[in-house]
């Protein structure tokens, strides 16, 4: 199953760093996401997009994960040659991941 079926996400940017939240629709899925969607597995899934380190933050109070991805925006919003310079569409790249 794709993450899209059980979780939602919002992408954000700061310079060349991409942030991706991962929020289960049902909060009881949070522990499962914590064990299945690690920094390493996301790094592997997004290998074509993110060339730097990925740090995962856990936010149990709101049952959400946050992935902070370095070197992910081809130089960043102001100087990238890509179409989506902000990487705003990349939340749905994370949701393509199979779990």
């Amino acid at each position: 199953m794709k993450l899209y079926e059980i979780a939602h996400s919002r992408a954000g940017d700061k310079g060349n760093t991409l942030t991706l939240s991962l929020i289960p629709y049902d909060e009881s899925d949070y522990p499962m996401l914590c064990s299945a969607v690690t920094a390493d597995s996301v790094k592997q899934h997004l290998s074509a997009i993110v060339s730097g380190e990925i740090i995962r933050y856990e936010l149990p109070n709101i049952a959400s994960l946050l992935f902070v991805c370095q070197h992910a925006l081809l130089g960043g919003v102001t100087t990238s040659l890509a179409i989506d310079t902000h990487g705003k569409a990349l939340s749905y790249a994370l949701l393509e991941m199979e779990v």
Binding site: R10, G12, K14, T19, S21, I23, Y57, I62
Partner: peptide, 16 residues
Amino acid sequence: LQTAKEQLLYEVINPH
């Protein structure tokens, strides 16, 4: 809850 969670984490590079 969903819109608030998405926005709380938007463009946050270290939530701590």
